[in-house]
Design a protein around this nucleic acid. Structure first.
Lengths: 348, 348
DNA sequence: CTGAAAGCGCTAACAG
DNA sequence: CTGTTAGCGCTTTCAG
């Protein structure tokens, strides 16, 4: 008749034990613990005391299940080591904690298959919502999975994924970077960026080309290298750029990871920056300030963006700030050029 | 009589719907989906097809609840922006994914109160285990919470927390760093490290002092600065060190965060490294290689450590590699000195 | 204000 | 091999 008699695995008391201990029904305990309005003050106190004494710990999943809600938020990023996503994770974890939510971290390594598996795992875990930095070409099944839950996109956007998005005005960022070099008198420029399959790849290239064109120069004449946004590609791309004749005098980078690679090549080539070459990076990990004369870069308000996206998702889910202006579908945040020491006037 | 008729919130079908659709019992569906041995091959196929067609997604929490287990692993770190913990998070997330577990990220900011709240939240979420980098002085309640679940400590250990631990042989690390400077002919050394309340603070200082003593010098004569392992402290500590007379010619750093601060001070003071001063850092974020002549440092095998701790926890939990040697209570990993350009022979 | 009973989605005896 | 039934820990009608 009766099922397994396994003692509640964790060994922790449940509301039933607390109820039994007090000689009341477990319903009463539940109500007291949840501060039900129609429960007497004295009962609440008695129950809370007993619960505390017995070392009662709420069983979140059971509660969530019964209430048909969830305390989990999924975050899918390509790479947590990247300072940008690490910072986002920090802020998002804090935002979640403030709402009594838990952040589940999934790293896609920019691999659509892994991304799919994570999306599935998160849905199975019944997350309340998902924050995703999509890979270049998400699997069709991933899209379906994401569509079926409350999802917001961060930094990158994949046109087929619905739901809100918080992005950087990337074109503005690289435009500022490029315009700065042009103002310094550089006319032979290079750009190292992500692939066109990434929304960020397209926009950042766009800003670069637009600035070049506005200066009356031809984008086609510039050295453009697009590839995976990883240090390795930055390194090779930079090496190719250095071999060009005439050699570009200014480089615009399209990500901090690419910058890492480019700097390695520049260092190996024993070039003096900014005497031999000027350089504007993208993003602003704290060591940029410390490197040589300080790296001129496009600063991104990561913290702010992360807070906005948390806020957006929380409002979609229904926790926090319920009444407010309608949910913005897409928020673009402006980056800001930070001029430090890797850019200088060019005397060709 | 009947309770709320809310349609399964997510709108997704449950095993019951799949069962109804096929005209079988939901038990059969459950068995088929879980590859129960005593279920016919044909039924399994029929069920799986139907489940797929209906877009069935497993309800993890319900399954976990019934099975009295959990798919969640909690990770409490002081700071994810720190490259060391970010790397650990990456590896741990991957290890978890490989076991169909989810990693829940909690950032303590080295605040015992926050740490307590995270520990509580994780227990409420019914995590299967917790990986924690404890704060200097965990709250008594935190200890109790951690004791009540399977816990392993990472990098730092708090004597009152039970369970396994994977740490760095920190004394060896700073000993190597210090011995290297001494071999280079430095006799006036400085050490900037974490507080004595941290296990890492004690060990790292220990290695430094031991090396000094072994060289026949007096540790008391050296400039030792201990404080919170954050850039701000590294910066002030370094400034104080530079003001000493005679000025130390070599600095040993006790963390990468402290290094960040120290470098800022050194740069502001316009000192040339390693001509005016030699420096050995701790940890090895990728930009160390790129900074100036390359930063000589104590390299830590983060990935390896993270894999070991995941393995340890998984074995404690009971997933993965069941039969094996007994669980090691404490594993200490050896760091390795990486000599680059910030250290040089001293000609006083 | 409190208790009894039903059921969230699932799995595990138990009986056929 | 499959169905019936009970119940994980919790909340929520509904009836006192």
């Amino acid at each position: 008749m009766s099922v397994d008699r396994r003692p509640a695995a964790s060994g922790r008391p449940t509301i039933k034990q607390v109820a039994q201990y007090l000689g009341v029904s477990h319903t009463t305990v539940s109500r007291a613990l949840n501060d039900h309005p129609q429960t007497s003050k004295s009962t609440k106190e008695r129950v809370r005391l007993a619960a505390h004494q017995l070392g009662y710990i709420r069983h979140g999943p059971a509660q969530d299940m019964r209430r048909a809600r969830s305390s989990l938020i999924g975050l899918i990023v390509p790479d947590v080591q990247n300072y940008f996503y690490a910072t986002a994770a920090k802020v998002l974890a804090a935002s979640c904690a403030a709402q009594s939510l838990q952040l589940v971290l999934a790293v896609s390594e920019d691999d659509p298959q892994l991304e799919y598996r994570h999306a599935m795992a998160l849905r199975e875990a019944q997350v309340a919502g998902i924050i995703v930095v999509p890979t270049a070409r998400p699997d069709r099944r991933t899209i379906a999975l994401l569509d079926g839950s409350l999802t917001v996109q961060f930094v990158r956007t994949s046109p087929r994924i619905r739901g809100g998005a918080v992005v950087i005005d990337d074109a503005l960022g690289t435009h500022q970077a490029t315009a700065h070099l042009l103002r310094c008198g550089h006319t032979r420029l290079a750009f190292i960026g992500g692939p066109r399959s990434l929304s960020t790849g397209v926009s950042r290239l766009d800003g670069f080309e637009r600035a070049v064109r506005e200066a009356g120069l031809a984008p086609e004449a510039m050295a453009v290298e697009l590839g995976p946004p990883r240090p390795a590609f930055g390194q090779e791309a930079c090496a190719r750029i250095l071999q060009r004749n005439p050699r570009p005098s200014g480089i615009v980078l399209g990500s901090s990871e690419l910058t890492l690679g480019a700097l390695a090549t520049l260092q190996a080539a024993r070039l003096t920056i900014p005497k031999d070459l000027s350089l504007v990076a993208y993003g602003d990990p704290d060591w940029f300030r410390l490197w040589g004369p300080g790296i001129t870069t496009v600063g991104l308000p990561v913290e702010q963006m992360s807070e906005i996206i948390a806020d957006l998702l929380f409002r979609m889910i229904g926790v926090s700030r319920p009444g407010r202006e309608p949910l913005p579908a897409r928020t673009a945040i402006d980056p800001r050029l930070i001029v430090r020491g890797t850019t200088a006037r060019w005397r060709g």
